[in-house]
């Protein structure tokens, strides 16, 4: 039996481009994020020096344009005499990896639990909602800290730690969306004629909640990059020889008064990236889903 259903709204590419060109902030966001993504991908070719190469006799050199600077080290060196510019370029890779991986994982958890709660309803919904309430009542940083104590340090544990707290917002929005979509006439109709839940989800519900899901996930990347730096501050960051901006900022903070460049450049890198992600997210929201504001 065949019934025709209205197609869900999917923005087309040309419209997306036109909207982007008319939004300067969004354009800036896309440019920043793209630039950082390219830096991360091409780190091997862009970095002037080996980011791990240390030379204690060249430690804490100021940027090249300052007195005492060395033209080989454009942004100066850190406490081990390693080249800051190269480290920041390679750090982009780790920071983006953590950001994307943690968001992917938390979005996956959030999406599954949100769908489950919204579709199943009843006791399952109540249970998931109580867990979400509990998660919201425990301060995020505190929760991350305790999970980090269990998970240990390093890239994979860090992703797990951040994802373990970050899924909550996503699950809530997905559930709310599912509940409102579920009540729409055509979906109610499809249910009444016995469409299978999985097919229903894939064909009708997912496309309808996609836009708010994308917006929330994008915004989350910024949150995750900031969370990585806070965890580094609290002693649960990325381990050497892996390089991340949060780790550089956290280690450099004791030199802020004497060798400001060690912490300032990674700080700028983090700020710029999060700024780009926020601008990108804002534009996506305006474009895809104005009611989320």
């Amino acid at each position: 039996m065949q019934i025709s259903l209205p197609l869900p709204r999917i923005p087309r590419l040309p419209r997306l481009l036109r909207s982007l060109l008319s939004n300067k902030a969004g354009l800036a966001g896309v440019a920043i994020v793209a630039a950082i993504a390219v830096t991360a991908l091409l780190a091997d070719h862009l970095a002037p020096l080996d980011p791990l190469r240390r030379n204690l006799s060249l430690k804490l050199l100021p940027p090249a344009w300052l007195e005492g600077g060395n033209p080989r080290h454009l942004l100066g060196t850190d406490s081990q005499g390693r080249d800051l510019l190269s480290r920041i370029i390679f750090g982009a890779r780790t920071s983006l990896t953590v950001g994307l991986a943690a968001v992917a994982l938390s979005s996956l958890i959030g999406l599954s639990l949100g769908l489950l709660a919204g579709m199943a309803g009843g006791r399952v919904d109540a249970l998931i909602m109580r867990v979400i309430d509990a998660m919201l009542a425990i301060p995020t940083m505190l929760f991350m800290l305790v999970v980090a104590l269990v998970a240990g340090t390093g890239l994979v544990p860090l992703v797990v730690v951040i994802a373990a707290t970050n899924w909550v917002g996503c699950a809530r929005i997905v559930r709310a969306d599912v509940l409102s979509v579920k009540e729409m006439d055509y979906i109610a109709a499809a249910r009444s004629i016995g469409a299978r839940p999985l097919g229903l989800i894939l064909r009708h519900i997912l496309p309808n909640i996609l836009s708010s899901f994308v917006v929330v996930s994008t915004m989350n990347v910024g949150t995750v990059i900031l969370a990585e730096s806070s965890l580094s501050f609290l002693g649960f960051g990325i381990q050497p020889p892996e390089i991340s901006w949060g780790q550089m900022l956290s280690e450099g903070r004791q030199y802020l008064a004497t060798s400001w460049w060690v912490a300032t450049f990674p700080g700028i890198a983090i700020t710029l990236t999060v700024l780009g992600v926020i601008l990108l997210g804002d534009w996506l929201r305006d474009h895809l889903d104005p009611r989320l504001d």
Partner: peptide, 17 residues
Amino acid sequence: ILGKAMPNFWVGIMLIL
């Protein structure tokens, strides 16, 4: 937006200095 994009402890130490 800048205020939101900066890591907290960095802002704090800068304010102290």
